[in-house]
């Protein structure tokens, strides 16, 4: 079987098993729940009660309402992606690759003669399909919530511009795809989900933040943080949605590097994760 044929065959097989895997739907559900809570629910409660909560510190009622309107969906949709969305996608990538070693399914697949390069590329393609589906569902979900708020509050419905929506989708895809593939690489290298999920979450949620803090004291650490995946993803989103003065904005959204540089760094991580995953799987002994 040629590599393209094997890739298509594996994509079909992986899509079948991913769509029947409860863990996948739990991941998507978790992301939608986070979008609901941090994108709309807390903001709406703050708006409705007139109080300033942690989600709306210093914001007026008018600005809170404006934030929830359909025209702002492209920004709200992106805000949680660098940190929370990315972390969830990394967990998904890690379990997609890693569980196959624990359950012995990769062994079964390869012992039946599946081509390794095609198997990895197909598996990544199926994961990418899920990332795209997550973006589409998430955008629709946010749009639905914003329309609900606008209707409830008797506001004029102004839909977001197609250009800004597509731009958000593109940036969201780069960010989620990067984290999903980093997770896939970790799951592949660790041959299991537990270690890769643990290491990945500690890195994305803790270590990078600590390094950025240390970077304010040490120049070489500061230079290093410029090329870290979290910095790149946060800066890419930050270049589109903007960063609140004083650093009290959405966690993970940064302005450390400019948008084009961040996009290039994220793209490099995507390519690197694919190449290293293929090389590792091609060369390794599968027990």
């Amino acid at each position: 079987m040629s590599t393209p044929t094997a890739t298509i065959a594996t994509t079909r097989a992986e899509l079948l098993r991913l769509r029947k895997w409860p863990a996948v739907w739990i991941t998507l559900g978790s992301w939608l729940a986070l979008s609901l809570m941090f994108g709309y629910l807390f903001t709406y409660l703050s708006y409705a009660s007139g109080d300033n909560t942690f989600a709306s510190e210093g914001a007026t009622k008018e600005s809170l309402l404006a934030e929830m309107m359909p025209v702002n969906v492209p920004d709200v949709f992106l805000q949680g992606m660098p940190m929370f969305g990315g972390a969830l996608m990394m967990v998904l990538g890690a379990i997609v690759a890693g569980n196959g070693y624990g359950w012995g399914t990769w062994k079964t697949i390869f012992s039946l003669g599946a081509q390794r390069t095609g198997a990895v590329l197909g598996s990544i393609a199926a994961l990418t399909c899920f990332v795209v589906a997550t973006l589409a569902v998430s955008l629709g979900f946010d749009l639905g919530l914003s329309l609900l708020v606008a209707t409830t509050e008797s506001q004029d419905v102004v839909l977001p511009a197609l250009g800004s929506t597509l731009e958000s989708l593109g940036v969201g895809f780069l960010v989620l795809e990067m984290w999903a593939l980093v997770g896939y690489l970790l799951g592949t290298v660790a041959r299991g989900p537990a270690l890769s999920v643990g290491l990945g979450l500690v890195w994305s949620l803790v270590v990078e933040n600590l390094l950025r803090g240390v970077g304010q004291l040490l120049d070489w650490v500061d230079a290093l943080t410029m090329v870290l995946p979290g910095t790149a993803a946060g800066s890419l989103v930050g270049s589109l949605v903007g960063v609140q003065e004083g650093g009290d904005g959405t966690p993970g959204v940064l302005d450390t590097v400019d948008g084009p540089q961040a996009a290039i760094t994220v793209a490099c991580y995507i390519v690197l994760a694919i190449v290293v995953s293929v090389v590792v799987v091609r060369r390794r002994d599968v027990a």
């Binding site: 029947k20 409860p22 863990a23 359950w103 012995g104 399914t105 062994k107 079964t108």
Partner: peptide, 10 residues
């Protein structure tokens, strides 16, 4: 080879 390996949830 050395026992079956399948997806438990399928």
């Amino acid at each position: 080879i050395e026992g079956p390996g399948f997806h438990p949830y399928l």
